[in-house]
Simulated scan of single mutants.
Amino acid sequence: MRVVLIHYRDSASLGGSLRVGELLGKHLGRFGTEPHFLFAYGGPGPVASSSGVPCHFLCAEGPADPQGWRNARRILRQVDPEILHFINPVFWLSLALLDWRPKVLHVHGPMEPGRTRLRDRVIWRSFRYLMSGYVCVSQNMRQKMLAAGWSREENAWVVYNAVDCQALARVPARDEARRLLGLPEAVRVLGFVARQVPEKGCFDALELLAQLPSRFHLAYFGDGPLHQDLRRRAEGNGALFQRVHFRNTQDDVRPVYGAIDYLLFLSKTEPFGLTIAEAMACGVPVVGLAGEGGYREPEFPLVTEETSVLSPRPDHEAAWGETPAGLLSELAERIVRLDEDSGRRGEMSYKARSHVREFFDAPRQVREMVKVYHAVCQRQRRGG
């Protein structure tokens, strides 16, 4: 079987979706599937340079670029795949390939139909008629798709995300990682690894840092629409700003997890929590606030009380308001207690690493994805 994995662009700024596609591309060959990457915009980036998978670039200038449409059809005639897997929802490309079946769409989220713009709701409803199936990263995400009427029971599958545990076992030593990233050595670093958007709780991280002892520093890794506002907020408090570090999105996340002492997770909603899985695979303790999302699903939990320190947020709707100061104070106290208990940290890291290796390692995800490919192709042959 030959599959084309479709992304917006080959750029680490895409965050988790690029890493999901890259992981699939690197491992599908072991399961009898030949992968190709197709990028709608831009040129070669981290995937092209390191994945070893054939990469094709449309170099489209936008959705209305006729050359992009022609390039897509020309490349796919050459590759001749059995299935198209849209890792990102490139709507115009699904229209350009309207007669090309089967197509599946990866649903990463966050999916909040009630908070989605009308234009985007129309696009997602249109995908129902353009796609042969959906791959959701959690049961929570699948239920949201069904409730919104954006998919049907029979063509929505759940394939949990995974990480490459073998690759993540090779992180740089702490001193080397901090030197590479320009972080101070003799401090405790909370790493905020996420796009800087409202649902990630970016400003809560600053409020939390203000309640922690001065030995704690905060490092933001990534970018997003809130980046400048975050900088201004941090700069407004001179003493606090000395403990805040802004770093770009990293093509290779291993130095990040080698450099930080804790992953700080504050998302108000999170479909899966890929950075949680990455941190756990690297033995980095996860601390923060637990909002709504698939990473705590009882059927297949990514985090448990034994593998993380997560204080529960208020109910889902309340979580979108201002985070109660008392909740951040409680979290600060829990982090300090954990930091003072090296035995507990070591046990947590060991259990977290073992849990991810058993349930969220790459081969497990890829095996399930190949099953979906075969199921979709079989339904297509039957005219479903």
Rank of each mutant, 00 (worst) to 15 (best):
E185T: 15
V189F: 10
G191C: 06
G191A: 06
V193T: 07
A194C: 04
E199Q: 10
G201P: 04
D204A: 02
E207F: 06
Q211R: 12
L212G: 07
P213W: 00
P213Q: 00
H217T: 03
H217R: 05
D223T: 12
G224W: 12
Q228R: 15
L240D: 02
R243V: 05
R243E: 00
H245V: 07
R247Y: 12
N248S: 00
T249F: 15
D252W: 10
D252A: 05
V253T: 08
G258V: 08
Y262K: 09
L264F: 10
S267H: 05
K268D: 04
T269I: 15
P271Y: 13
P271H: 14
I276L: 15
A279L: 12
C282S: 03
V284R: 07
P285K: 14
V286F: 09
V287I: 03
V287W: 13
G288C: 03
L289H: 07
G291Q: 03
E292A: 00
G294V: 11
Y295R: 02
P298D: 00
V303G: 00
T304W: 01
E305Y: 15
E306C: 00
E306S: 02
T307W: 03
V309T: 01
S311D: 13
P312Y: 08
P314L: 06
D315R: 04
W320V: 07
G321T: 09
E322R: 13
E322H: 04
